[in-house]
């Protein structure tokens, strides 16, 4: 029923694949964050066209399933003449998608900053951009840190889909193992455990981050 041996053999291979999972998730989170800042700025902009653009971006990238976005990136980029490896296409798709979700989270953070602070910095003549970078983002980060960690966990799980475009992360590696050993159950259970381990570590880090930001 359950072959412990093939299960145990799968683990080291999946551990290496986990590095790829974490790498893609981390990069996706970082780039997604930059995109999110742009999206939030648009959504909270005083100009209606910008707001519409921001809201449209959020609607589209949260409404279309990640799988479809991945396939679009995989097939679309070559038509633009951009020939990238599956890994890069995957990271691009994941970042764009994350940008929308993170944008929503950051929006809450930005809205939580007292209006008076922004006005004070404006009175002091500090530029809009500098205000964004030095005043708003740090505070928004502080307010939304726990949600951001949660989002990272969601991202790690979502990254399993990039197996579809051939990236050698946990799920893809498990598929390969299953194909060569003819023991899919053991391979996928091992994969599941690997994800749980990664997410478990992220949760713990998240608690530390929460406490760290509480004190600050």
């Amino acid at each position: 029923m359950f072959d412990a041996q093939s299960f145990l053999h799968a683990l080291p291979l999946l551990l290496r694949a986990a590095q790829m999972t974490v790498f893609v998730s981390a990069v996706g989170l970082l780039i997604g964050f930059l995109i999110a800042v742009a999206v939030v700025s648009a959504c909270l902009s005083p100009r209606p066209p910008m707001r519409r653009l921001g809201n449209l971006y959020t609607f589209v990238f949260r409404g279309v399933p990640l799988l479809v976005q991945l396939m679009l990136a995989y097939y679309f980029l070559p038509t633009l003449g951009i020939n990238v490896s599956p890994d890069v296409a995957a990271i691009a798709a994941v970042s764009l998608c994350e940008g929308a979700y993170l944008g929503e989270i950051l929006r809450g953070g930005f809205l939580g900053i007292p209006r008076g602070q922004i006005e004070a910095t404006q009175m002091l003549g500090i530029s809009r951009f500098a205000t964004l970078v030095h005043i708003e983002i740090p505070q928004a980060l502080k307010l939304t840190a726990p949600s951001l960690v949660n989002e990272m966990i969601l991202l790690v799980k979502a990254s399993s889909l990039i197996s579809v475009v051939g990236v050698a992360e946990i799920t893809r590696t498990a598929q390969n193992i299953a194909a060569s050993t003819f023991r899919p159950l053991e391979a996928y259970v091992a994969a599941g455990l690997m994800y749980m381990a990664v997410n478990g570590i992220l949760s713990v880090l998240g608690h530390y981050a929460e406490r760290h930001f509480e004190r600050a």
Binding site: M1, F2, I153, K157, A158, S159, S160, L161, S163, T171, A174, Q175, A178, P184, L185, Y188, V189, A191, G192, Y195, M196, N199, G200
Partner: peptide, 22 residues
């Protein structure tokens, strides 16, 4: 906790490809 910390795809694989084991 198990269902919320593992990807849906992996759960699906376990049920569909691993189910016959049981």
């Amino acid at each position: 906790e198990v269902l919320r910390t593992t990807p849906f795809l992996v759960q699906l694989f376990i049920l569909y490809y691993g189910g016959p084991n049981f």
